[in-house]
Each structure stands twice: as structure tokens, then as C-alpha cells.
């Protein structure tokens, strides 16, 4: 992908996960050694914490958002900055869709910086993880984005 082909309003190919099950949640919790009871102890989650069910880990969702962006920029680009809030709770049975939309573009040094809004919606379209991101991509006939990435290559980029 080249910077010159990116337009404001462009939507990224979505990344869809699910339907999520207790198995998906426990697989992540075990892999990360995350012992927060709300992710595996139904009685604790519902009776003690008053939640509707065990919850899909926010720590898991963030990597799906990173996947959304890294898939889009490809091996020529770099996911520079990403931020998001966990505002919604997701439970077993939910299907989660990570999405992104271009909100701005900027030439920075020899590279292109693309700003995006991102998020993750459930099967009912309810947004649970709104956020923003900035990615760096190659310009037509420009050099490859340096790796490891150093933002000094962007000069005075404001993204």
C-alpha cells in the first residue's frame, strides 16, 4: 500500500472474531496467566461483581485492534500509535468486529502518516472499544519505513 492511494473516509477491511465462547476467554487467560476471576469464575462474576456473565478480556481485544492495523499497513508500513478505551463489556456468544476509518493524512519527512478512528463492535453494532491510531506508510517512490521504527524519521509530524 502507498500513501498516495489512501483517502479520508476510507474504511479498513474488518477483522471478525467469534462467536466468542468461554473456551476462547479461558484460552487467553491461561496463556497470559491472568487470574482475574471475572474471566473464568461465573459465580464470582455474576454474584459477587454483578456482571452479566464472565467477560471477554480487554487485554485480548487490544491485540485484535493491533491486528486490524498491522494487516492493513502490511510489511512496508508501521503501526506507530494506538489508543483505545474499554467502555463496553463483552460476554460469551458475542461476535466482535474490529473496524477502522481514515480520518486524516499527512506527509511527514519522506513518509506518509495516516490517522484513523478505530473500534470494536459486537453483533448488534454496539461500540465497546473506541480509539484512535496513527500509522506510517511508504510514499510513492519513497524509502521503506525504517525498522525498528524511530519517530524521529517523521520530522515535525503532528499525528
Amino acid at each position: 500500500m502507498q500513501f498516495e492511494s489512501v483517502i479520508v473516509g476510507q474504511e479498513l477491511p474488518e477483522v471478525v472474531k467469534g462467536p466468542m465462547s468461554v473456551g476462547h476467554i479461558v484460552r487467553w487467560s491461561a496463556a497470559m496467566e491472568n487470574w482475574h476471576r471475572i474471566h473464568f469464575d461465573w459465580r464470582y462474576a455474576t454474584e459477587h461483581d454483578g456482571l452479566p456473565d464472565v467477560l471477554v478480556n480487554g487485554s485480548w481485544k487490544q491485540h485484535v485492534l493491533m491486528q486490524l492495523l498491522s494487516d492493513w499497513v502490511g510489511e512496508d508500513g508501521w503501526v506507530w500509535r494506538i489508543s483505545f478505551q474499554y467502555r463496553g463489556m463483552n460476554i460469551p456468544g458475542d461476535t466482535l468486529t474490529a473496524w477502522g476509518r481514515v480520518t486524516g493524512t499527512e506527509v511527514a519527512g519522506a513518509y506518509g502518516v495516516v490517522r484513523l478512528e478505530i473500534g470494536m463492535k459486537d453483533q448488534n453494532g454496539i461500540e465497546g472499544s473506541p480509539g484512535e491510531a496513527s500509522v506510517v506508510i511508504r510514499r510513492e517512490n519513497g524509502p521503506a519505513v525504517p525498522y525498528p521504527f524511530d519517530a524521529a524519521c517523521l520530522g515535525r509530524a503532528t499525528a
Binding site: 482475574h36 461483581d49 478480556n57 480487554g58 487485554s59 487490544q62 508501521w78 503501526v79 506507530w80 500509535r81 494506538i82 489508543s83 483505545f84 478505551q85 474499554y86 472499544s129 480509539g131 525498522y147 525498528p148 521504527f149 524511530d150 519517530a151
Partner: peptide, 14 residues
């Protein structure tokens, strides 16, 4: 007694 993860901000290098 309760705790939730509110979100993250990242800058990524390698």
C-alpha cells in the same frame, strides 16, 4: 473491591 481495565495508549517501536 472491584477492578476493571480502562484502556491503553501505545507507541510501538519493534
Amino acid at each position: 473491591p472491584g477492578i476493571l481495565n480502562g484502556g491503553y495508549e501505545y507507541e510501538l517501536y519493534s
